[in-house]
Design a protein around this nucleic acid. Structure first.
Lengths: 134, 134
DNA sequence: CCTAACCCTAACGTTAACGTAAATCAATTT
DNA sequence: AAATTGATTTACGTTAACGTTAGGGTTAGG
């Protein structure tokens, strides 16, 4: 559907289906102040900006951020931060997040290496079994 | 300390301090069958293999795996899987994990880009403020 | 002998992120 | 008109991963 400005809009059910989550989750994110869709009467109407935000929430979750942390990132991102202090606090936060992400990259690298080894061992054993079997 | 084979061993407190977690957590991992240290009477004695496993547990957690999933990975890794079926199931699991890790790498890349932008905006604003201030 | 610093078990408490059920309302479809 | 479909609120239930007492045992030092 489209709204009065001819923008595309979505119902809660549509977004739930698209991202494979339940409407309950989406309402919960709103309850936690991560979303604030328009309403028509009682019914929630999501615009494209809301949809992008939802996508960001889910990405954050995949990375192991809590909803509270995600909210912080949003506030950090949205705030038209104007005081020096706020800006510096913000830079500090981004640096913290960056450190976590770097750690995760390391972890993933190690884990992938280990998976490689496991897989190799498996393939060897499989080849072995097939030799004997034939 | 060392055990009868002259291997290095650790108390629960030592490991807790080294990895910056509580003894309670370590005991909990044991309760979930992720660790099984020796005992001297009631007291737990951890060998180097246990220590490595603990390190793996924590790495898994950082990547957002549940303890149950980590246990699965261990069983997958430990099992002297000898039947074709087991081996193939194993390869399937590693592929699944790999997909998740790839997704996380993508997510991290995007998030880092976004952090870059936020940071850049911040630095610009900061420079701006300093110009006016001087 | 007393205290401090470790270790132990058992069991109840807590937080995050929803799930689920009940009761209701509005718009279509049959 | 009745039924289906999808929306709403309210509120209690659930799971994971520990935290937090409570109660008790053991060794080293003063």
């Amino acid at each position: 559907m489209t709204n009065q400005n001819n923008e595309i809009t979505y119902s809660i059910g549509e977004l739930a289906k698209e991202f494979d989550i339940t409407p309950r989750s989406i309402r919960f994110y709103e309850e936690q102040d991560l979303l604030s869709p328009e309403r028509t009467g009682q019914t929630r109407i999501y615009c494209n900006k809301d949809r992008v935000r939802l996508k960001l929430i889910l990405r954050g979750k995949r990375l192991g951020f809590s909803l509270a942390e995600i909210k912080n990132l949003f506030e950090l991102y949205d705030s038209n931060a104007n005081s020096m202090l706020q800006l510096q606090a913000m830079l500090q936060m981004t640096e913290q997040k960056r450190a976590i992400l770097r750690q995760q990259l390391d972890d993933i690298q190690m884990l992938m290496n280990e998976l490689d080894e496991v897989e190799k061992r498996c393939r060897d054993e499989l080849a072995d079994l097939q030799k004997r079997g034939s």
